[in-house]
């Protein structure tokens, strides 16, 4: 059975910039920049379409599934057992490799959570020395 996905809870938010996309995990503080292909796949996957549905050919489906696995490993999407088979997605062909850029440097700023992690001398949002 083809796997369907949804965003991994309310901590995962995203914004579109032209053809690109930025996903933020509010819980971890990590940002993820997706290129045009990545954004296209993201939108199709979180709309509940399986990798098999997305691909116009076997290679595209394979790429889409690998991308979905990557997103799942990054805790950005999770399998949605509740989605039934729906109308087929307009199948796409990929002109470039989907890319996810991970911005970890921001996590220290956002996470500091629980706030016991905050440096009591320097204060928010500076993380304590042993973590920075």
């Amino acid at each position: 059975m083809s796997k369907r996905y949804k965003t991994a809870g309310p901590d995962i938010v995203h914004e579109k910039f032209g053809d690109d996309l930025v996903v933020l995990n509010l819980a971890s503080g990590q940002y993820f920049g997706l290129n045009t292909t990545g954004a296209t796949l993201w939108e199709a996957l979180i709309a509940g379409h399986s990798a098999a549905q997305i691909g116009a050919d076997a290679d595209t489906s394979t790429t889409a599934q690998a991308f979905a696995d990557h997103l799942q490993n990054l805790n950005l999407i999770e399998i949605d057992e509740s989605v039934a088979d729906g109308a087929a997605y307009t199948q796409i062909s990929l002109n470039e490799v989907p890319v996810i850029e991970v911005y970890d440097d921001l996590a220290d700023l956002i996470v500091a959570d629980p706030i016991h992690d905050v440096d009591a001398e320097a204060g928010w949002p500076k993380a304590p020395a042993e973590q920075s």
Partner: peptide, 26 residues
């Protein structure tokens, strides 16, 4: 690009004002 600008604009504000992070991000 707007994406580049956003990546510079959003993080510190989102991190420094608790309670409304999703709204600040948007």
């Amino acid at each position: 690009s707007a994406k580049q600008a956003f990546l510079a604009l959003a993080p510190s504000g989102v991190s420094q004002i608790p309670g409304d992070r999703a709204q600040l991000y948007a």
